[in-house]
Write a protein that binds this DNA or RNA. Structure first.
Lengths: 164, 164
DNA sequence: TTTTCTAACTAACAATTGTTAGTTTTATCC
DNA sequence: GGATAAAACTAACAATTGTTAGTTAGAAAA
């Protein structure tokens, strides 16, 4: 809290005029970010695009967030375990439904003949790991061009799954 | 330290008969794990296998470590930033040369016509992210069969890169 | 048995942590 | 200009942290 206070130019105690506790601040940051992902997923999932285009739009969203909210993404990726009480449960539920929807889109790609039949759980895991760690590679390598990045990802993550 | 002491059945102060400091213990755990990876990489890289087989062996190593040393892998993946002084520098150097060698093997795959020409930096990043996060999916899903896992990974991570 | 050494113990330290109580400053509105 | 509210401040608290000093138990060596 003293570090945060210094960063915004006040004493640690003064922060408590604006927040109720450190946990509240942390929870707010994390759940806001989680809801951003949830909202993005819903918009994409409810659209009428083909499942492949949906995947491309999801990848695009992850790249955008990694570049735009690098710090928050670092938080949500690494520190969510420190959420307490019902915030922890709520986060896990948001994450779970996000992943389920993501996997369903992959399943649709297979059903509709775009992808060859693969283990969707592993495909999901592979894609999500890459997207979730993107922020850390991006902060090591700020000269990566986001647009280029997005294009390469769509190629690299999806083309391998496509039917020949 | 009190938690660790309880886990091994003694008082926190007694730990200091065995270690010099918390940092030393932490450093020991982390750098040992880092050297395991380095050693594995060297053995594979110095072998006379084709670059594709080398990649398969690397994947196999990551899967094995994720299953065998789940906790240490969690440490090395998430907590390395808390290394101090020269241990920090040493870790970064080990990681850097590991990644460079990994990328070189991918480049060899392209040069020797196994892979279609891709951005090797992004391919490396994608593969490594997946392998590094494997431990966390494995601890969520202990019923994953390591042998099956390895096979699926080799398929999922490499086949997408191969020439048709 | 006596000595020695290892590894546990108790008690306490200093530093750091999130937080609260009470006070003063700053801006806003009548 | 005086009242009011918001937001900063100082000072301190209680809890937790890594660690040290000094002591004691237990096994091995003499």
């Amino acid at each position: 809290m003293r570090d945060i206070a210094q960063e915004v130019g006040m004493e640690a105690a003064s922060l408590y005029n604006h927040i109720k506790s450190k946990q509240e601040l942390f929870r707010e940051l994390l759940l806001n970010m989680a809801h951003l992902f949830t909202k993005g997923m819903e918009e994409i999932n409810d659209s009428s695009y083909t499942p492949i285009i949906k995947l491309e739009k999801l990848i695009s969203m992850h790249v955008k967030f990694a570049v735009e909210y690098t710090d928050s993404i670092s938080l949500i990726t690494n520190e969510w375990v420190h959420l307490e009480g019902q915030a922890y449960d709520q986060f896990l539920e948001l994450r779970d439904t996000y992943e389920k929807k993501f996997e369903n889109i992959i399943k649709n790609c297979i059903e509709q003949g775009y992808f060859s039949p693969v283990n969707t759980e592993i495909a999901l895991f592979s894609i999500l790991s890459t997207l979730r760690w993107l922020y850390s590679w991006y902060s090591r390598n700020k000269n990566m061009n986001p647009v280029e990045l997005e294009k390469e990802f769509i190629h690299c993550l999806l083309d391998g799954l496509k039917k020949k």
